[in-house]
Structure formats: structure tokens, C-alpha cells
């Protein structure tokens, strides 16, 4: 049976894609870590956590259907990420204080992270305008909606597990070094 494209299912798909966007930023950070051999700083790791937290809230929407508590979780994760990335930007905002890592398309990664977090906050606010997503009964969803939700969840699990491993190797049991030298 083919599902219906009602507001609820469209929003579920949007949330699944949004989660994949958040996770793709972490994949990009991994690429820079291993291709350009640039080890992540402690605040960079916390920004990854912000991405995972925001993606987690969006994955819950994609899996279980849109609910205010899921959006609230995603917003808290994004606000956490904004706090961390702003702190990282502020550390280098004074001319002559240098920067951490190389710039990508003119911005450093923590600046890009701040922009991504702001964009997802705005996107969530706009999507929450659509009240029918909370009122409509749970119906048969098109296959692509469930597929994207499962893929987003799998990517989230993989990234959380991968970061657990690579961070354990980089930082061992103590606090992460402020100026890390080990990529892995």
C-alpha cells in the first residue's frame, strides 16, 4: 500500500533529511581530521556533540512522528552547539590571536558550525508553524519516509560509535588536550 503525503509525513521526511544534513557536517569534520590530518580540539568535539544532539531530536521526529518534545530536544542541541561555536569564535576574534585549523571556503569550521546551527534553528521554527503535523492521525507513510528515518538513525549510531572510539584514542581516559597533536 502506497502511503499518503500528508503534512505529518512531509514533515517526517524533512526531519530525516535535516538529521542527515547535521550528520554530514560531522562526516565532513572526520574527513578533515583524517585527510588533512587535523586533530579536533575539545571545543570542536563538543560542536560535534551539538550536531549529534540536534540530529537526535530530528531523528526522533522522523522515526516516531513529529512531537513538540522532539523539536525541543533538537533546539536545545542546537543552542548548545551555538554556545560552543560562539565560544570558539570568541577565542580568536581579536586580531593577532590566531585561529584553530585551516579555513574552508573562507570560514573556519567553528564559524561554519555556528551558521549551520543558526540555520537549523530557523528551519525548525518555520516547520513548527504547520500545526497539522501534530493533529493528523498516524497513517501509512510512503516508503521513502521510513527509509530516510532509518538511514538517518543508522548514520547517527555510526557517528556516535565512531566518535566514542576515535575520541578514546585521542584523549584516552583523561581530559582532551587543548592543543591536540594525535589524529588517532
Amino acid at each position: 500500500m502506497v502511503g499518503t503525503w500528508d503534512t505529518r509525513n512531509v514533515v517526517r521526511l524533512f526531519n530525516g533529511v535535516g538529521a542527515l544534513v547535521m550528520f554530514s557536517v560531522v562526516i565532513g569534520a572526520y574527513a578533515i581530521q583524517f585527510i588533512f590530518l587535523e586533530p579536533p580540539c575539545p571545543l570542536c568535539l563538543l560542536i560535534r556533540i551539538g550536531m549529534l544532539a540536534t540530529g537526535f531530536g530530528l531523528v526522533l521526529n522522523a522515526l516516531f512522528g513529529p512531537k513538540p518534545i522532539h523539536y525541543g530536544f533538537a533546539l536545545l542541541g542546537a543552542i548548545f552547539g551555538i554556545l560552543v561555536s560562539l565560544r570558539n569564535i570568541a577565542l580568536h576574534i581579536v586580531p593577532g590571536t590566531g585561529s584553530y585549523g585551516d579555513a574552508v571556503f573562507g570560514f573556519h569550521l567553528y564559524t561554519w558550525a555556528f551558521l549551520v546551527f543558526m540555520a537549523i534553528v530557523i528551519a525548525i521554527a518555520v516547520v513548527m508553524f504547520f500545526q497539522r503535523q501534530f493533529d493528523e492521525p498516524t497513517g501509512q507513510a510512503p516508503r521513502i519516509v521510513n527509509l530516510v528515518a532509518v538511514i538517518a538513525l543508522a548514520v547517527g549510531i555510526f557517528l556516535a560509535a565512531a566518535n566514542t572510539f576515535t575520541t578514546a584514542v585521542e584523549c584516552e581516559l583523561g581530559p582532551c588536550p587543548d592543543n591536540p597533536t594525535r589524529v588517532l
Binding site: 556533540i49 549529534l52 556516535a160 581516559l173
Partner: peptide, 10 residues
């Protein structure tokens, strides 16, 4: 410690 945090997220 940070790795344990990722583990909780996992």
C-alpha cells in the same frame, strides 16, 4: 572523559 560522553549519546 569526552569518549564516555559520546558513549552516552550512543
Amino acid at each position: 572523559m569526552m569518549a564516555a560522553l559520546f558513549l552516552v549519546w550512543l
